[in-house]
């Protein structure tokens, strides 16, 4: 292809300070890169969650370093650990208090399925009380697995019809 344009990137002088895009991709771009987690640390998985947030693995590279202990300010609940029936009500209540849009990562075997705790006291998978977007295997999962889940969630969010959903809501 022959062209006289030698610009290979956005040039405000030529484009006139205007970028043309789709609402969906703009909204999703904002959402994916500042996904603030609600750290629902209930057991040993929470230690790996802390490791993921620290400098060696640095979840900040994916825009999710701002752990919010207020559900009002968080976008993504990371259920890290064993959910007992006694705790299940609190988990659901905190999920209900999060503002839309919101997502859930079930981190580790216990949160995903009850894990090895097949007992009278343990909720057999957090998806029985909240809708889960990404499950992570492992007992506990390594920080890389959590980062991978976060990237998978971001890929999922990028495909959402956000503008349409906004109009509908």
């Amino acid at each position: 292809m022959v062209t006289t344009n030698t610009e290979i990137a956005y040039n405000s002088k030529i484009e006139g300070e205007v970028i043309v895009s789709r609402m969906d991709s703009v909204i999703n771009w904002i959402r994916t890169n500042s996904m603030w987690p609600m750290p629902m640390g209930l057991a040993c998985c929470a230690i790996e969650l802390m490791g993921t947030a620290s400098s060696r693995f640095d979840i900040a590279r994916f825009g999710a370093e701002v752990m919010r202990f207020s559900p009002r300010q968080s976008d993504c609940m990371i259920v890290a650990g064993t959910v007992t029936y006694k705790m299940a009500s609190a988990v659901r209540r905190i999920y209900d208090q999060m503002a839309e849009p919101k997502w859930v990562i079930a981190m580790g075997a216990c949160a995903s399925s009850g894990g090895m705790y097949r007992s009278y006291a343990t909720l057999q998978g957090v998806d029985r009380i909240v809708p889960v977007d990404v499950y992570i295997s492992g007992c506990p999962p390594r920080p890389e697995a959590l980062l991978d889940a976060l990237m998978k969630l971001q890929a999922k969010v990028r495909l959402e019809r956000s503008a349409t959903n906004l109009r509908r809501a």
Binding site: Y85, K86, A88, S89, R92, R93, D96, L123, R128, I129, V130
Partner: peptide, 11 residues
Amino acid sequence: PDAEIMAETGA
């Protein structure tokens, strides 16, 4: 334990 959560989720 929580009747409200049980009604909401069916769990």
